[in-house]
Amino acid sequence: MSRELLAVENLVKRYGENTVLDKISFRVQEGETLVIIGPSGCGKSTLLRCINALEPIQGGRILLDGQEISRDAKSLPKLRQRIGMVFQNYELFPHLNALDNITLAPIKVQKRKRAEVVEEAMSLLERVGLKDRAYDFPRQLSGGQKQRIAIVRALCMRPEALLFDEVTASLDPEMVREVLDVLLALAEQGRTMLIVTHEMQFARAVADRVLFLDGGKIVEEAAPDAFFDAPQSERARKFLRTFTFETVKHQKIGGYSK
């Protein structure tokens, strides 16, 4: 078995009186794709934000490769470089073109050579089919294109793990696919990823393991087929039912013709 990259131990996150994450613990192996699902407000986005230390936590700890990720740590920027994050609303920098968005942090933060970074950025852009948009500004790009650029921006830092926070939730339906395809390709390459998503079919296809979160707790943790075919808990069954529709037409006919 490969090594353990990320460990979350008894994580507690509160907003005032309200406990959003209640003693969450799980581990992620190198190369593993973990999908986190659950109803709105279950704390799954907060969980990702805690892992990147964008939120202060009230208990427990988060370890990357044995090193604690804490908001007070001097080494926090260094640790964050090792974790890439992609946001729901892309958060590209609007004053920079696509290429500068991607190369800013590698050049300024990692102090890598500009030529080398540009070359890597271009080849990554080519892989997501956006090489010809390298010099476009974010406002000139569609949502799906912006999100693919944001993914490349995270990749160009050569992170060891990637966090995806509902990356398709703001997209028009026809653009969801182009972004999910990129994620599938990354999973195939054996990247370590934590994905929060509402796309159930995609979750099943991409996941090595599924975490089902509800009320700030991990309610179920299972392999994708097991979880989607035979969820153990009533809460998971109820949640999965909200994604299916039963036809109403025959009942209507029945209703009219006594």
Binding site: I83, F87, N89
Partner: peptide, 15 residues
Amino acid sequence: SQKESALSLGMTEFQ
């Protein structure tokens, strides 16, 4: 969120 996105790329507060 713009600042957070910069931080998540490993920038310091000042950067």
